[in-house]
C-alpha cells in the first residue's frame, strides 16, 4: 500500500514537472513561432512583388488583408467580406448576396492583430452577420498599395495536382496580369511534377494577361533555349522583359514527363484568377456604391 502511495506521488510529481517544462517551453516558443511564420509569409509576399533577397521595401508600400466568408442561414447564402478601413481603424463587414446585391454593411471594431487570429475573427463575423447565420472562412486576399494606389493583389489557392493538392500564392496586378507565382506546398513526384517549383516553369506564368489566361493551353514541346535562359533569370532584366513580352500570349510549355502536373497548375491558376476577377468586380462596385472608405 505504501508502495502504491509513493509511486502515485512520485508519478504525479514527475508529471507535474514534465507538464511545467513543456508548458513553459510552449509559452516561450508560441510567440516566436507566430512571428516566424509571419516573417515567412511576408518573405513570400515580397518575393512575389519583386523585392527579392532583402531588397529595400519602400515605406509607401502597404498590405491590406481582405477576408472572405461564406455566410449561410435559413435557405439563403451570401458572401461576407471583411475589408480593412485602414491601420488601426477597424474593418467593414460587407455582406453581398449571390447576385452581387448588397445585403448589409457594418463597421466591425477589430484590431489588426486580433484579425490575424482566426478564432477572434470568426466570432466577430458571426456577430456582424447576425443571429441564425453560420459563417465559414473561405479565403484571404491581400491588396497591395503603393502610396494609396493599388498595385497588386495576392491570391492564395489550393487545387488538385497530379498526386495531392498543390498550394500556391499568386500575385496579379490590377489588370489581373500575373506578376508571379509561388508554390507553397505540393507532393508531386521528384524530378517530374516536383519541377513545378522551378523558376523555368513558374516564371512562364509571369506577364500572362487576364485575357490570355482565360484560354491558356499547355503544350508538350521543349522550351526554346533563349526563353529558358530568361526564365531561369540568366539574362538581364531588360532582355527577359522583352522575351516575356514576346511569349506573353503563347501557351505554357509543359514540364517534360509531367504534363498532368503542368496542366493542373495552369488550370488551377486560371481558376483562381478568374474567380477573383469576378468577385473583385462585385466587391468594388458595392464599395463604390456605398462609398465605404476602405484603406485601399
Amino acid at each position: 500500500m505504501k508502495n502504491i502511495i509513493t509511486i502515485v506521488i512520485r508519478l504525479t510529481v514527475s508529471c507535474l514537472l514534465a507538464a511545467s517544462i513543456m508548458g513553459l517551453c510552449f509559452i516561450f516558443t508560441s510567440n516566436a513561432k507566430k512571428h516566424n511564420e509571419h516573417v515567412q509569409e511576408q518573405r513570400v509576399i515580397y518575393d512575389l512583388l519583386g523585392y527579392k533577397n532583402g531588397a529595400k521595401i519602400p515605406d509607401s508600400l502597404a498590405l491590406h488583408e481582405v477576408y472572405r466568408y461564406v455566410i449561410s442561414g435559413g435557405d439563403r447564402q451570401s458572401i461576407g467580406y471583411l475589408v480593412p478601413q485602414g491601420h488601426g481603424k477597424g474593418f467593414f463587414f460587407v455582406n453581398i448576396d449571390l447576385n452581387g446585391g448588397l445585403l448589409a454593411s457594418k463597421t466591425v471594431a477589430l484590431g489588426d492583430t486580433e484579425a490575424l487570429d482566426p478564432k477572434t475573427r470568426d466570432k466577430a463575423i458571426e456577430q456582424a452577420a447576425g443571429p441564425g447565420y453560420t459563417v465559414k472562412f473561405a479565403d484571404q486576399t491581400i491588396v497591395v498599395t503603393n502610396n494609396g494606389k493599388r498595385i497588386a493583389y495576392l491570391l492564395g489557392g489550393k487545387f488538385q495536382g497530379f498526386k495531392t493538392f498543390v498550394n500556391v500564392m499568386l500575385a496579379v496586378d490590377p489588370e489581373f496580369t500575373i506578376l508571379g507565382l509561388a508554390v507553397l506546398e505540393h507532393e508531386e513526384d521528384p524530378g517530374l511534377g516536383a519541377e513545378i517549383v522551378q523558376d523555368y516553369f513558374k516564371n512562364q506564368f509571369k506577364g500572362k494577361a487576364f485575357e490570355a489566361l482565360k484560354t491558356i493551353e499547355v503544350v508538350k514541346a521543349p522550351i526554346p533555349t533563349e526563353y529558358l535562359e530568361a526564365l531561369n533569370g540568366r539574362v538581364s532584366e531588360e532582355a527577359s522583359g522583352k522575351l516575356r513580352e514576346q511569349y506573353k500570349d503563347k501557351a505554357i510549355y509543359a514540364l517534360t514527363g509531367a504534363t498532368i502536373s503542368s496542366k493542373a497548375v495552369a488550370e488551377g491558376v486560371k481558376g483562381i484568377v478568374t474567380k477573383f476577377a469576378y468577385r473583385l468586380n462585385v466587391l468594388d462596385k458595392i464599395l463604390q456604391e456605398q462609398q465605404l472608405a476602405v484603406s485601399f
Partner: peptide, 10 residues
Amino acid sequence: TVIDLVLAAY
C-alpha cells in the same frame, strides 16, 4: 516536446 516546439518556432 521541447525540441519539437523549439524547432517549429525557430
